[in-house]
Simulated assay, not measured.
Amino acid sequence: MKALGWTAPYFLDADHIGLKTVDRFVGVSDFFTIDVADFIAQPADPVAVQAFVDRHPELVGTLSLAGIDRPFTTTRADVERTAAKFLLAVQEAGKVYRHIVGVKGVGRFVPEISMDETDSPQTPPELLVILAAIADEGVPIQTIAPKFTGRFNKGVDYVGDLTQFEREFNDDLCVIAHAVKHYGLPANLKLSVHSGSDKFSIYPAIRRALAKHGAGVHVKTAGTTWLEEVIGLAEAGGAGLALAKEIYAEALSHMDELCQPYATVIDIDRAKLPPAAVVQTWTSEQFVGALRHDQKNPLYNAHIRQLIHVGFKVAAKMGPRYLEQLKACRESCARNVTGNLLERHIRPLFL
Rank of each mutant, 00 (worst) to 15 (best):
M1Q: 07
M1D: 06
G5C: 13
G5I: 14
P9A: 06
L12A: 06
D13Q: 15
V22H: 07
R24Y: 15
R24P: 07
S29Q: 01
S29K: 00
D30F: 07
D30A: 07
F32D: 04
D38P: 01
F39W: 13
I40T: 11
A41T: 13
Q42P: 15
P46G: 15
A48F: 10
A48M: 14
V49W: 05
A51Y: 02
P57C: 08
L65M: 01
L65V: 01
G67V: 02
F72A: 01
T73C: 03
T75C: 08
R76K: 12
A77I: 13
A77K: 15
V79P: 00
A84I: 00
L87H: 06
L88Q: 13
A89T: 03
E92N: 08
G94M: 15
G94C: 05
V96Y: 08
V103Y: 05
G105M: 15
G107N: 04
E112V: 14
E112G: 03
S114A: 08
E117Y: 06
T118W: 12
P121S: 06
P121M: 04
Q122Y: 13
Q122R: 10
Q122K: 14
T123L: 04
L127Q: 08
L127G: 12
I130E: 04
L131A: 02
A132D: 02
E137C: 04
G138E: 14
G138V: 14
K147R: 05
G155Q: 08
D157Q: 05
Y158L: 07
V159W: 06
D161L: 02
Q164I: 09
E166K: 03
D171Y: 00
C174N: 03
V175L: 13
Y183A: 08
P186I: 15
A187L: 02
A187K: 04
I202K: 10
Y203Q: 07
R208I: 02
A209R: 00
L210H: 08
A211Q: 05
T221Q: 04
G223V: 06
W226I: 15
W226Q: 13
E229N: 15
V230I: 05
A234R: 04
E235I: 03
A236K: 10
G237D: 03
G240Q: 10
A242R: 05
A242H: 13
K245V: 14
Y248K: 02
A249Q: 13
E250D: 03
E250V: 09
E257Y: 14
E257L: 02
Y262M: 06
A263N: 10
A271N: 07
P275C: 03
A276Y: 02
A277D: 10
V279F: 01
Q280M: 04
T283G: 12
T283N: 12
S284N: 14
F287I: 02
F287E: 12
F287V: 10
V288I: 01
G289H: 01
L291P: 06
H293W: 05
K296F: 14
K296C: 15
N297M: 00
A302M: 01
A302I: 01
A302Y: 00
A316K: 12
M318D: 04
E324D: 07
E324A: 07
Q325S: 07
Q325R: 03
L326P: 08
K327A: 12
K327D: 10
C333S: 12
G339V: 00
L341M: 10
L341Q: 11
E343M: 05
R344E: 15
I346L: 13
R347L: 08
L349N: 11
F350S: 12
L351H: 11
